[in-house]
Write a protein that binds this DNA or RNA. Structure first.
Lengths: 228, 228
DNA sequence: ACCTGAACACCGTTCAAGT
DNA sequence: ACCTGAACACCGTTCAAGT
């Protein structure tokens, strides 16, 4: 009586055991759904997130998800913002090094996204969640305290945003396929007649990503810093 | 005899006309397939490209595509590279303004991607096609002639790449949903208690994207320029 | 060499219903 | 308030076959 149909989608809980309620899954909740979605994305990438797979992992029927969440898009939005939480550091004394603060904020941002390689390329295409807005607000406040006037503020923020996003998206996708990369560089070598310059510097392989990020950021900050 | 089954997928050619061969579709070819794919992407976005829709547009069966192309991934790769063709300008005199050359190359690159808003966010996640490699090679050569030494070359290229990609991806996706943007800014205003700084500068609305791009690029080039 | 339909193993989501 | 299965309208791709 317990197993109504043998072909039914298996659930992780026991099927014909003695006390089917004991030790069963906790009830669904938005938090559990999003946490599991992040897991799925981390292990299987963007294409690995499926409403059906998500439900399976949660031990529920697919359609149960839709009571907690409007649609799959919404799952993406929430998973993305979840990954971008930022604990604002205790506001330190006033006249400290604003530049170090900015670098720290942006490096933390980048690190958060690299921990979840699917997140960076998703971010620019979705509506900005509260955690991202919070990061932007903090960045803006720091620049403001540093003396960047309001007329230059949006240029400053977007330049930094552009740079961080570009660096992180590139890094995240180049990382994923180190084998492909080696193959690409090999192909490049075979084509060294066409692309002699980038072939000789081993552009695709010899890149110190962290160093590149840091240096480009410094150049940008040099330009954006209020002239004294 | 001509219309074998009424429920068959309609083709754009006539079904029971007098001379069914006349005025029919030209034969399939990789070029036609890719050109149509680009069309589809331009008008319906990334999710609008479907093997079935592609075949429909071409007046062929779905599976016919697979003779010309390995799989859908390959269609993406080829469509992307097709959109990034670059006509190398006639090599002008020697000691000209390398900086103007670089800016021109990168602005052309950005413009090409903005003409096909789906392309920018696709590019970093795919293997680099010949047209992209060509652009990188040209950029590299220009920097080299400008005096950037080999040890600094990869940092220079990747910094510029990161910036261009970030700027273009952001611009392309913010453009697509100007209504969403206004809604987002409105939501921001409602939340001005939480995000006072970015709310007051109207970060989401008052952005001169072209100006931002140009300025940030200038700062980067200031930093990357060989010291004289 | 080039094209095809049927079939398989998936998708996201609507709906009407159960507790 | 919360969860469910059946069903619909899609997907990409394998296969065995047609010309």
């Amino acid at each position: 009586m317990a197993g109504k149909r043998s072909g039914a989608r298996k659930k992780r809980s026991q099927q014909a055991e003695s006390t089917p309620q004991l030790r069963s899954e906790p009830p669904l909740s938005l938090e559990r759904i999003i946490a599991t979605a992040v897991d799925l994305l981390d292990t299987h990438g963007v294409d690995g997130l499926t409403m059906r797979r998500l439900a399976d992992r949660l031990g529920s029927g697919v359609m149960s998800l839709y009571w907690h969440v409007d649609n799959k898009e919404r799952v993406f939005d929430l998973a993305l913002d979840a990954v971008l939480a930022f604990r604002e550091p205790a506001p330190r004394g006033e006249a400290l090094d604003w530049r170090a603060d900015v670098v720290h904020m942006l490096e933390d941002w980048r690190a958060s996204m690299l921990r979840h390689p699917w997140s960076a390329s998703l971010l620019p295409r979705r509506t900005l969640g509260p955690n991202i807005l919070n990061r932007l607000e903090l960045l803006s406040r720091t620049l403001s305290k540093a003396g960047v006037i309001e007329a230059n503020m949006n240029v400053a923020i977007w330049s930094l945003w552009n740079y961080v996003m570009g660096a992180t998206i590139t890094r995240a996708s180049f990382d994923r396929s180190i084998d492909d990369l080696a193959a690409a560089q090999q192909a490049l070598t075979r084509l060294s007649a066409h692309y002699p310059t980038i072939e000789s510097t081993r552009l695709l392989l010899d890149s110190d990503w962290d160093g590149v990020f840091r240096k480009g950021l410094d150049f940008l900050l040099d330009g954006l810093a209020p002239k004294t």
